[in-house]
């Protein structure tokens, strides 16, 4: 039934996210310059670039954690503007995973997952818990449900964070450097969950430096520098045949 609903949505809005001539400033600093980007439903996009290039800010604009000052952002056919109703609707549709996990440390894993479904979607407690257990099983940690986040490893915490977002049944998932705060041994367990999610057709935007992950799942790779999109291409061409000198320099340094 859930899949049907998602499919209906997708027939309604084949475009998941659209940014038109979007600009953002922090005070006088022009962080994002004239961003034009269209993300189709089911697309998996990787955003990379040097630190401070505005890639995190870009995806944080898409659910209004940051406010853009000029241009338009459309999510599932709704414009993201000052209207609180629109913001509310869009945040329900978009799940987000952070670099620092941002689990709620005073709540158990299960409570973390049930909180938003109960308070935002007004689901009954039992139903919310069933959904939560379902997603905790999918990220392979149902046995940790009654622990507090502080008792889990970084990789486990990040998987809980992913499950927590999925419990809201989002159409789009944003990942803001999900593996950057993790030890090498834990990166794989988080990436495996993300690959599964990608294979199921979730629309994903991922800011990451995991180029192996980019190669294996991305439909498109976007390279940013100084607040602008420098280059976008399919992963094959992006890695083997970068067009701009800035991209070549970046790739030579990280690969």
């Amino acid at each position: 039934m859930t899949e049907n609903a998602t499919q209906q949505e997708s027939t309604k809005h084949p475009i998941a996210i659209e940014l038109k001539e979007m600009h953002k400033w922090y005070g006088d600093f022009h962080v994002l310059k004239n961003i034009n980007l269209t993300i189709k439903r089911g697309e998996r996009i990787i955003i990379c670039g040097p630190s401070g290039c505005g890639k995190s800010t870009l995806i944080r604009c898409m659910n209004r954690l940051e406010v853009h000052q000029q241009g338009e952002i459309w999510v599932d056919g709704i414009e993201l503007d000052d209207d609180l109703k629109h913001i509310e609707k869009i945040r329900r549709d978009i799940g987000m995973v952070f670099q620092q996990f941002n689990l709620f440390p005073h709540l158990t894993v299960l409570e973390n997952c049930c909180l938003a479904p109960i308070w935002v979607l007004k689901k009954p407690k039992k139903e919310a818990e069933d959904t939560a257990m379902h997603y905790l099983e999918r990220v392979k940690i149902p046995d940790q449900a009654d622990k507090y986040p502080g008792q889990l490893s970084g990789g486990q915490q990040q998987r809980v964070a992913i499950a927590r977002s999925l419990c809201m049944n989002p159409n789009i998932m944003l990942f803001d450097e999900p593996t950057s705060a993790l030890d090498p041994e834990m990166i794989k367990e988080v990436l495996d969950v993300m690959v599964d999610l990608a294979n199921e057709g979730m629309t994903m935007l991922c800011v990451t430096h995991e180029m192996g992950f980019a190669k294996s799942v991305a439909d498109r790779v976007i390279f940013m520098d100084s607040g602008e999109i420098i280059e976008e291409n399919d992963p094959e061409s992006f890695f083997s045949n970068p067009q701009s000198d800035r991209t070549k320099l970046f790739l030579s340094q990280i690969l």
Partner: peptide
Amino acid sequence: LPKGQNEAAEALGLS
């Protein structure tokens, strides 16, 4: 309180 706590709550759609 780290700013991320507020952001996570907002991103989940809490008022």
